[in-house]
Design a protein around this nucleic acid. Structure first.
Lengths: 236, 236
DNA sequence: ACCTGAACACCGTTCAAGT
DNA sequence: ACCTGAACACCGTTCAAGT
């Protein structure tokens, strides 16, 4: 039963679920999540759009698969880290894992919004949370407090927070700064804050709202939460 | 120059920006954010789809307007609360404001995802943050710490956290529970947690992952953050 | 088993035109 | 000033058919 072989198909890698997800990630990396269409993913794989439906049920399945693929990337990145000394405590291990997750996320700016839009949690994500839960348990957290901890960390455990003030690339910082100055009388506190903690930022188009360092803020809040959890553990 | 009057139009309210936003909110309340199309919003206003473009630039402007409308709803709800005694501290005031915001959010389940997807911050939202900043300043926070505090609270200041484990209505809890049991060997910690802190939940289809109380978790984490901030303020 | 072509229903939006 | 009809480009997806 020698199956006929498509003369073009034999010169390209066969389509698989995994390759569909990776192609989708490449499309999103290149053009943002709005550019992610079935037709573009198919293009990326050198295949007709309808072929995708042989491998995945629909677009939602691709979005779910992208999330799982990125969680696997995080787990791989954590695996490549130098092993921690036996003396390392839970906070060190968890903190390092979370900042590694953040490294992965920073390479896919569209990912946070995608993660938060999904409602189905896949097996890779489940295992990720199970591992984090294990770290907390090693840190002598009760299941009850560990459960609270997962809620407290939220998406931060995967290395991101969805910033409400995220500036998109369309609107320049000069523009938002100008809009802000126009409302100065209605925003007495924000205006004063801008002047006090970042007078230099008024002409610095590099920084988000003129004065935020996302990485520093991420770590500040992360430590606030980790320290708060530790304190609760030790006083309970 | 007596303008002709459309005999149908005179029996319906004139379309305005505000009415477009309110109609969009009604559509999303009824059918979720995916059901929000220009055509459905127009239907809601008893008007042709193309008429909307006379009042708003595009769909993105409607989404931005919906966010602003909800922020105004929050501010109104806060305004309707009994005034706090003069002795009330910053934490009481901020906590109450945030839980009031949450009440509004709970009436619009699609709103959290929408809020997080927007990148332009409108004037009402700006004023909201300015007010929160004012509360922190009254609590003797430096601008620097108050700024950190806004990051630490994140979307929580508007009454929501985007739960990664949010169960959608399609997939029943029995289903996710069954999927979880099937992976039990790969999820030793989660499995044990489920058995330990919520053995009763295994047959309780009412609770999210079987044992989470969202409101209680929200308040737990809120207090964790507020207390942590207060501690930093007092030791700085 | 794997891929494709044609077609459908639906979407946001443009443009020129109506009153 | 405010609203509309026709049309366009694009989307996810179905179905029957190809090799």
């Amino acid at each position: 039963m020698a199956t006929e072989i498509d003369p073009i198909a034999q010169f390209r890698l066969p389509v698989t679920k995994e390759r569909v997800f990776r192609a989708a990630i490449a499309v999103a990396d290149a053009g943002g999540i709005d550019a992610l269409t079935m037709r573009k993913v198919a293009d990326e794989l050198d295949v007709e759009p309808m072929s995708l439906y042989y491998h995945v049920a629909n677009k939602a399945a691709i979005l779910d698969g992208m999330v799982e693929a990125l969680v696997n990337d995080i787990e791989d990145a954590v695996g490549r880290l130098d092993p921690l000394p036996d003396t390392a405590d839970w906070k060190t291990a968890l903190r390092r894992r979370i900042l590694t997750a953040r490294d992965v996320m920073l390479r896919h700016r569209w990912a946070p919004a995608l993660f938060e839009s999904r409602t189905d949690v896949g097996p890779a994500t489940m295992r990720y949370f199970d591992t984090v839960l294990g770290l907390l348990r090693q840190g002598r957290f009760s299941f009850d407090l560990a459960h609270h901890a997962l809620h407290a960390l939220g998406s931060r455990v995967l290395g991101f927070t969805q910033e409400l003030f995220e500036s998109d690339d369309e609107q320049s910082d000069e523009q938002s700064m100008a809009a802000l100055e126009q409302m100065a009388d209605q925003l007495p506190n924000i205006t004063q804050m801008m002047m006090e903690i970042a007078p230099h930022a008024r002409n610095d188009p590099e920084s988000t709202l003129g004065y935020c360092d996302d990485q520093a803020e991420f770590e500040f809040v992360l430590d606030l939460i980790l320290d708060g959890l530790e304190r609760i553990r030790d006083t309970a």
